[in-house]
Design a protein around this nucleic acid. Structure first.
Ligand SMILES: [Mn+2]
Ligand SMILES: [Mn+2]
Ligand SMILES: [Zn+2]
Ligand SMILES: [Zn+2]
Lengths: 154, 154
DNA sequence: TTCCAACTGAAAATGTTTTTCATTTAGAAA
DNA sequence: TTTCTAAATGAAAAACATTTTCAGTTGGAA
């Protein structure tokens, strides 16, 4: 349940000769212990409880850094905004609940066959893919059903 | 090669009881005849040549409308910005060249099996997916190779 | 301890997208 | 044709996420 990811991240920072500062610790801790994706603003808000001085700019800069180092993954939304979530090791994507924001990662995106076929057919050299799946998490689906049932019985 | 799509779009507007205005015609024509994805700003710039009065706000509104009606598809970029491209009928995605912007659509995204498996494993009800593939188009790949060869021979 | 590249926050700038609102217009109805 | 009205428009301002700038601070190597 708890996440030992933050230790990895701390080590990673050292390896890359980046400093481990109080602001970064606060941001790190929040991302590592969240099971939901969080926007930069949300992270800022939460982190300020531990480190009130923290600026939003530093949140953005830290998120960029952690994304680059591979410790955090961006989640892309249709409106163009981004959220962030602790990244699993290696390549993965997320299932995101559009109702409550819960995110669940999965690593078997299985796009290799598709990509290979497309490369052959089109001559494109495909180097990046972006895959986001959205829907309703089990909990939200259940409460939705309960509501519908209730409405129908009235 | 040429696109009869614009006729579809005109008919579609009528069917949905939306007006076919000069600004919309200008925007429609540009999207229907482009083989590259275009940003709202780029569409605005081009459309002004035909209809100088056109405001950028109208471009945004028209793109929203056409996307909603299914005649145009958004292309999502990592930085959060969007481009637009004439949509094929039915569900499809695009291969986008990160060098020149050329877009090629493909319809066999083949995510059904993946989605079914994930739904079963996780209990999520997956209703939306976003898939963008990016890389280099054949032309850009070729000119890149030519450059590399040239550099090496110096 | 010293030292400096890395890091920071405040403020301002940027760039995209949305809202507001007074005016105009497409196209249906008379 | 003319009338009428919901739909559409553009200018301006606002909203919003994100980036840049810059002067000061700090982690941690030496
Ligand atoms: Mn997007
Ligand atoms: Mn994105
Ligand atoms: Zn949920
Ligand atoms: Zn290209």
């Amino acid at each position: 349940m708890s996440a030992p990811i933050s230790h990895d991240m701390r080590d990673g920072l050292r390896e890359h000769r980046r400093k481990l500062t109080r602001p970064r610790q606060a941001i790190l801790d929040i991302i590592a212990s969240a099971d939901h994706h969080l926007t930069p603003a949300a992270i800022h808000k939460r982190a300020r409880k531990k480190y009130p001085h923290l600026g939003l700019v530093t949140v953005y800069r830290t998120l960029d850094l952690l994304t680059e180092l591979g410790y955090v993954q961006r989640v892309h939304f249709d409106d163009g905004c981004h959220s962030y979530i602790a990244a699993p090791h290696g390549h993965a994507h997320h299932l995101v609940c559009s109702t409550c924001g819960k995110a669940q990662e999965f690593s078997d995106c299985d796009l290799d066959a598709l990509i290979a076929t497309l490369q052959r057919k089109t001559g494109f050299e495909i180097s990046v893919h972006m895959l986001e799946l959205m829907g309703r998490c089990p909990a939200c689906a259940a409460s939705q059903k309960a509501l519908t049932r209730q409405a129908r019985s009235q």
